[in-house]
Structure formats: structure tokens, C-alpha cells
Amino acid sequence: MKTSIKFSDNLRFLVFTILFIAALVGLGTHVANAQPKRIKNIVLVHGAFADGSGWKPVYDILVNKGYHVSIVQNPLTSLKADVDATNSVIDRQDGKVILVGHSWGGTVITEAGVNEKVAALVYVAAFMPDKGETTGKWVAAAPASHDAGFTTPDQYGYVYFDPAKFHGGFAGDLTKAQSDFMNASQVPIIGKCFEEPVHNVAWRSKPSYGIIATQDKALNPSTERAMYERAKAKITEIKGSHVIFMSQPEEVAKIIVAATESLQ
């Protein structure tokens, strides 16, 4: 009889232990599933007169923080071509995406950002047009700086940033050596890109962040603010030139990280 009671008690204890562990495992699984996963994918889109390599300082910071970062090399031949190039990169991502655009790249992400994988947009000294608007409208929205200027379209339709004004007007807070190389390796844009209207506006339905480069001479900071405020974007001012993503990469990366964290 004593042996039987002892066996029964041990059996009850074993069953209780198994059920308790199972409950803990189930609770842990429920909590894990209840916690939204951090968005890990970030896609960076460059603007006119530069290419994706300018994003390297921001890329390095984000990758070191554990993000998966992809950089679009948009051809700058038409809005559609650039949107297609951006969507090609977005579609390759495993999960949701934070889409980031600089300058003309802001127009591109406004259109491409309607992609269902895009969760939020970050505009870095960028254009943020509405439906039916052209980038050119916003280029002319404020008086141009005397330190900046563009060439007229050449026989192939390409427009360059005025080489004589490149350092002061485009990359004033980079070293002269950095600026000289960027000037020599300019990626021109087809001038008609600035005349193409936007058809889809992602910022109307998705969270948006806008970075104002307070010393920007290529795109007037007041113009950046006007577009961002209209879109009700979360605005951050950073002291720097038009290529603020190169001169102040830590500050720019901080805003991109904030975009990923705000969606958790």
C-alpha cells in the first residue's frame, strides 16, 4: 500500500511538472508572437548628380546596428525608370521596408513608396511632391542660391550641377578633395525628369519623416520645410549641406532608426 501511494504521488508530481512547463512554453510563445518584430530592411535612394556610393557612411552605421541595407542605383533617365529600379530592390526584400530618399530621390520614393512592402518613408533634404506636381515646381518655389546652379540640357538631354559651383552649392561641408571627386564623377539627370508629374503619393497613407539640411544651397531649406509640413511629416533639422547624409551620417542614421522603432 505504501509503495502504491508513493508511486501515485510521484505520478501526480510528474504530470503537474509537465503541465506547468507546457504552460510556460505556451506563454512565452504568446508573448513572442505578440511583440512586433523590428523592421530590419532599409532601402536608400540617391538623388541627382550623385550615385548610391554616397550613402556608404550611413550604410556602415546601419549595418553595424544589425539592419539589412540595400542601395538603389537609379538611372536618372525618367521618373518611371527610377521608380522601377527602386521597386526592383524593394521587391527583393524579406519583409517590410523603410524607404529613404535624398533630393530627387524624394520624388522617387513618393511614387515607389506605395509598394505594399514599404512601411514608412524618410526624406533627406528631399523633394516631397503631391499628386500631379512636378519636381521642377519645387525647384522654382524659392529663389536659387547664388552658390548653386545647373547646366542647360546638353544634346542628349542631360543636366549637370554647375561644376564651378559644385563645392559651395552642393557639398560645402565636405572636404575640397571629396567634393572634387564627386564633381568629377557626377551622374547627370535627364532634364525632363523635373517636368514629370507624380501619380502616386505614398506619404498620404504612410508615416513620413523629413530631414531639413539647414545649410542647403541646392534645395532651399524653406522649401524642404514647406513640403514636409504640408505632408505632416515628423521634421528634424540638421546643420549641414545638401549632402547631409555624407557630412552628418550619424544624425541621419538616427532618424532612420527612429522610423524603424516607431512602428514596433
Rank of each mutant, 00 (worst) to 15 (best):
T135H: 09
F13N: 15
V63N: 05
E229C: 03
S53L: 04
I61W: 07
S53M: 09
A259R: 05
Y160S: 04
S222P: 01
A141K: 08
V43E: 04
G172N: 05
D51N: 10
D180Q: 00
I18N: 10
I238L: 09
V108L: 06
W55E: 02
T29S: 14
F170H: 09
H30P: 03
A171S: 15
S185K: 11
T152L: 13
V243C: 02
M246H: 03
S70C: 04
G95P: 09
P36L: 10
K96D: 12
P207H: 04
F166C: 06
E195K: 03
G136A: 00
D180T: 01
N87C: 13
Q264G: 06
I190S: 04
D9K: 15
E229W: 00
A125M: 00
A120L: 05
W55S: 08
A231S: 05
K40L: 13
A22H: 02
P129Y: 05
S145I: 01
T151Y: 13
V124T: 11
K165P: 06
K137E: 10
N200G: 02
L76A: 09
I71Q: 01
L19Y: 01
P57D: 06
F49T: 07
A142Y: 03
W203R: 00
M182I: 12
S222H: 11
A259V: 07
N200R: 15
K217C: 11
L219A: 00
G168T: 01
F181E: 00
I212R: 07
T77W: 01
L44R: 03
P221N: 12
E251D: 14
V25N: 07
E224A: 02
M227K: 02
E261F: 12
P36R: 03
G105R: 08
F127R: 10
D130S: 14
V118Q: 10
Y59I: 09
E237C: 03
F20Y: 11
S185P: 03
V15Q: 13
Y59D: 06
A259M: 11
N183T: 01
